[in-house]
Computed example of a mutant assay.
Amino acid sequence: MPQPILIAIDASPASTALIDLARRYCRPDQHRLHVLLAIDPTFAVHARPATYSEEEREEYPAACDEQQLAERALQQAVATLREAGFDCESAMVAGQPQDAIVAKAQALDCALIVMGHRHLSRLGRLLDPSISAKVIDRVKVPVLVCPAS
């Protein structure tokens, strides 16, 4: 049975590097890939991909735009991986990224987590510890971290 690997992306251009990394180091015959995108609850208009009513667009334009950007990033990542021959599933959840990543990795009993990393100053890290560091501290599986370009 293929081992599940979790790829945690966001809607930034750095997500492309994560997908490329997974394509390079994973094998379609040995790994089942799960792409997860956690969207900030502030910008979560719906719990899942949906169309937006005119009323929602008028009341929450930034949230609708942010969620649509996230949905497109998730769809593109899955399409790219499927084109490469991977069995791939995806999920978008509203919540704190580290909580969503840890919960999904545990639910899937993942063999590996692939995620990105922002370059922050020491002060930046002190004020806002990185999501990858928070995940690494909470899981018992390897975490492959790809630095942002």
Rank of each mutant, 00 (worst) to 15 (best):
A94Q: 00
C146G: 04
E56M: 09
A79G: 12
P142M: 13
A14M: 12
V143S: 09
A107S: 13
S130N: 12
R82Y: 09
D99T: 13
I5K: 04
G85M: 09
E71Q: 11
E55C: 07
A62F: 10
I131Y: 08
L37I: 07
A38M: 01
D10S: 06
A105V: 00
A133G: 06
D99V: 04
P49I: 02
A70E: 00
G116W: 10
S132A: 12
A100H: 05
R27T: 14
V145I: 12
R122W: 10
A11H: 14
Q3K: 15
P61Y: 02
G124F: 08
A17W: 05
I101R: 07
A62M: 07
L21G: 11
L144C: 02
E89Q: 05
R23W: 06
L36I: 00
Q98V: 01
Y25K: 06
R27H: 15
A79I: 02
E66D: 02
I5C: 11
L69Y: 04
R122Q: 08
A79N: 12
I131L: 06
A8I: 05
E58N: 13
R32H: 15
R32P: 00
T42Q: 13
D10N: 12
H31V: 01
E56L: 07
L108V: 02
S121H: 03
D87A: 12
P61Q: 12
I101Q: 04
R23V: 07
L6N: 06
C26L: 09
L127M: 07
G124E: 07
L81S: 01
E83F: 03
A94I: 01
M92H: 02
L120R: 15
T16Q: 15
R24C: 01
Y25V: 06
P28Q: 11
Q106H: 11
T51I: 12
A47R: 12
H46K: 14
L21N: 15
P97R: 01
R82W: 08
V139Y: 06
E66T: 10
T80S: 14
H34D: 10
V102F: 08
P97Y: 05
H46I: 04
E71R: 13
Q76F: 05
R138V: 00
H117V: 05
I113K: 07
P2C: 08
A79Y: 14
E89G: 05
D29V: 03
H119G: 07
E71I: 07
R72D: 14
A94E: 04
A17V: 03
R24P: 00
D29K: 11
P2W: 09
G116F: 02
A107D: 10
Q75T: 12
Q76K: 13
V143E: 06
P4W: 14
A79F: 10
V45N: 10
R48P: 00
I19G: 01
L33T: 13
R122F: 03
D87P: 00
H119K: 14
S130L: 05
I101H: 04
D10P: 01
Q67D: 08
L144K: 12
A84R: 09
E58Y: 13
Y60S: 05
L112G: 04
L69D: 13
R118S: 01
A38D: 08
T42S: 08
T51K: 13
L18C: 06
G124K: 03
P97H: 01
S15R: 12
L74P: 00
P97K: 03
L123F: 14
K104I: 02
H46M: 01
V135R: 03
I5W: 09
